[in-house]
Structure formats: C-alpha cells, structure tokens
Nucleic acid binder design. Structure first.
Lengths: 244, 244
DNA sequence: CGCTGTATTGACCTCCTTCAAATGCGGTGG
DNA sequence: CCACCGCATTTGAAGGAGGTCAATACAGCG
C-alpha cells in the first residue's frame, strides 16, 4: 500500500510508471519538519524552490491592509504549494503552515529536470495544477453563493474527499486540525459566526467535530445540504491496479 | 500600432518574436461573431477547441442548483477562455458572452503545434494562464474580504487596467457594457444592492457610469478606496519597443 | 407609440458583525 | 496532584450590511 501522498494523488491523473514513483520517493527523502504557523515563503519573495506538503495542513493567504488575513487555499499532504508560480517572478501571496508540517523543498532545477525527462510525470503535475485551479474556482463560488453554514459544510466535504484520496481519511471521518479562527479567514466570516454555524451543523446532526477530528455520519446528507458535487476535484474513485 | 489584443497583452509576458506575432495574426483570421448571451461551451462538454476573445466581453460561470448563476471570470479582448482546461476531460463550468463578441476558435492541435515549435510563444501562453489564476485568487479575496461597494470599485480598477493593456481604454475611462444583473452574479449580490452601491460610488464622485461607459475621475482615489494593488495582474507598464 | 429589458425606489427582514465577557482545556511548573 | 497560564471556544446583546418582494421609472427599439 503506497504511503507517499503525492504518488497516491497522482494515480488519479492517469497513473505513473514504477520509475516515476521511485523518482518521487527519492525526491521526498529530503523532507524537513516545520512548526505550526510558520511562513514557508512570503508575498514579494522570488520563489526559488517549490514546496510540497507530505504531512500536516498548510495554506495560501494574502494579508489585507487593515491586518485581515484571507486564506485562499488549504494544502493537505500531496499538495504542491507553489508549482504554478514558477514562471512569475514574485509571489503575490504567502504560504504558511496551519499545523506542524512535514515539507519537501524541491529546487526549480529538479522540477524542470523531472518534467523534461519524464513525460507521464510531467503530465500528472500539469493535471495537479489544473485541479488546484478548479478547486480555486469552486471556492469562489462557495464564497459568492452559499450561506455561512453551507460554506463550512462544503469545505468539510471537500477536505474529507481530498484526504481520502491520499489515504488519510476513512469513509466517514478525517483529521480536522484547523482552528475556528482559521476557518473564519477561509470564508471571510468572523470567528464568532463560524462558531455559531458549527454548532448549528452539529445540532442538525450533519457533523461531529471534536478533538481536532471531523466525523460525518451521513456523507450524502451533508453533500445535499451544501450542494457539493465532487466532479470539480476530478478524482472520481478509480480502480488502482497498484494497490491490490 | 498593434491592434491584435492578444499580441498586445503578450508583450507583458516578455515579448514575442516577429514570427510569433505573424503566427498569432494568422490564427486570428478565422474569427467569427457571436451574439450577446450565447454559451460558447457548456459545463460537462469535452473541450475540443480553445476560445479566444478578440472583441466584446465574455465570462466563465457555474449554474447553481436553484438557478443562481455565479460568474467566476470576466474575459476581455486578448483573453483565452479555456486554455487551461485542455488536459481535463470535461468542462466544470460554462463559457458565455456578456456582449456581442468576436471569437476565434483554435483547435487543440494548433495550440499544441504552437507550443511545440515556438518556445517564446509557449512561454507567453503559460504566463497568460498564470495571470488568469492570479486574477482568480484576487477575486476570491475580493468576495471574502471587501464590502459590496469596494468589490465593485475593485472590479472597475481591474477591468480598466486590463483594457488599457490591450489598448481599449484610456487613462481614465473604458467601455463597461456589463449589466447590473451580471455584476450581481459576479459578486454574489442582488441586482438591487448592486444598484444602490453604484449610486453610492457615483455620489462619492469615485466613478461616472453611464451609456455603457465607465469614467474614473481620479484613479488613485478609487484604488485607495478599495485597496486595489495592480501587482497581481503582473502587467506593470513596460516600454514597448514595437509601439514606438 | 407601445413593448421589453434594464435601472431605480421603498419598506421590511435576516444574516452576519461587533464588542465584550465567560468558559473550557491542554500544557507546564511547583 | 494541583494551580496557573495561554489559547481556543462559547455566549449575549445590539447594530449594520445586504436580501426580499413588489412596484415604478426609464431607455432603446421596432
């Protein structure tokens, strides 16, 4: 059973060769741990290395004048933090950890080498980038169209599925180490209102959230509540011949 | 003076060779006109061709269960509608015109051929895609963090600049053929509230909006009002040796 | 000159914010 | 084991931004 979250995720991109998988594993050996609430790379910096999350939760955020923080993406194991900005000269946002994390930093040269010489891997990485953008679009819709409780529900549906893909969640539950104040920064709500909406979701029996863990008694009901359609994640479960 | 909006925009990507420009012009000869409020490609379809806007305004939207429409992007001349989704098998959103448009459809084969054989052009197209994503991120922040009047102001600042880049706006004004109900679908507001906020912006002297045209008497003041920082567009004016 | 789509107005209601204080809880040191 | 600290969560009351519904004004167009 594959434990590398990136390899697991990229199965959904169309599959890698055994050589590709070895390569990814090798690159991931150079990991390091990072404390909670550390910036990995800041707005304005020139990106030198690409960051990959192997364990823990990270995020992408922008600071507003006025001190407000808006979180534009949550990054879970298997997610690249900044694969896409390679070409742009300066970061227009910051990457930070939300929990203690295990991170791999990969030099741009290595990435280019991988892409040059390993076409299936290159294709898979492009796919991963496209999925990131699809998630971003769905988040935009989430903010624009849904009520606060639905936004939270939608987020939980998404994270549950994304963690299932990398083998960190089971059918009905996953770790949820994100603070309420972080949730507030994701949805453009106040901490207070997030708290009240969480209570409402709990009272409705849609979620059980405690001890940094989320349980969803009835996934279909939660999905129906917020209009979650998993298609945008482009991760419809497929038979994975390598896991048998 | 270059009139092709795509070529004008791509100057900011680092410049094209004269051969690249000829190629782009040739591809753009196959344009066609499309009525207002027509879908160019719908959610669920397999994308065959890539669409490029040469004239008019288009948009990217998702329909919600309940019939609400959320507009996730506004596409102006020089913008590709779906360059990024080439790899994903199905559209997870719809592309439609907001005004009568001139559109070029480019086959995937042509795009691949261009990218294979014209490295500077390939680089420029990748850059354009990254900028599209940066805009998407800024829109997310716009919805999450700003009040309704600031959202509108921010949108006007962005469109003014993007139209200046392709030579369709002057220092203080640009066409603004978008209906108030479309603006509502961009910001997740109601038509009624958009109307009131527009009046407020007018009364504050921040904008003059009439006859489908926007005038901004004091661009700096409007930018300050909504916290607009043009960096995310990665289009800081540069000397363009070909326009002299 | 009437028709259709768009813009505008008013009254009322709800969701979410603001500000402030209280409660719970996981560690750490005595 | 208990007292204490810092952080996260929870609660309450009151105000404001934005929604809803329905009517009216207006503009372009055949």
């Amino acid at each position: 059973m594959e434990t590398n979250p990136l390899i697991r995720k990229l199965q959904y991109a169309g599959g890698l060769t055994e050589a590709d998988r070895c390569l990814v594993r090798r690159v991931c050996e150079a990991m390091r741990t990072v404390e909670r609430r550390e910036d990995l790379i800041q707005q304005g910096e020139r990106p030198e290395n690409v960051h990959l999350v192997l364990d823990g939760f990270a995020c992408r955020y922008k600071m507003m004048e006025g001190g407000n923080r808006h979180i534009m993406a949550v990054l879970v194991p298997g997610d690249f933090c900044d694969l896409h900005v390679a070409l742009l000269s300066r970061m227009d946002h910051t990457i930070a950890t939300l929990t203690p994390c295990t991170i791999v930093e990969i030099s741009r040269a290595t990435i280019l080498e991988l892409i040059e010489n390993h076409p299936r891997l290159a294709c898979a990485l492009r796919w991963a980038t496209l999925v990131d953008v699809a998630v971003l679009r769905e988040w935009l819709v989430n903010l624009g169209q849904r009520s606060a409780d639905q936004r939270l529900a939608h987020f939980f549906c998404e994270i549950l599925l994304r963690l299932q893909v990398v083998g960190l969640a089971n059918e009905n539950g996953c770790p949820m180490p994100i603070r309420q104040s972080d949730l507030a920064d994701i949805f453009g709500l106040t901490e207070v209102h997030v708290n009240r909406m969480l209570q409402q979701l709990r009272e409705a029996g849609l979620i059980v959230l405690r001890q940094r863990r989320l349980e969803v008694p009835d996934v279909e009901r939660l999905r129906a509540f917020c209009g979650f359609n998993p298609d945008y994640l482009h991760m419809t479960p497929r038979v994975d011949e390598h896991d048998i």
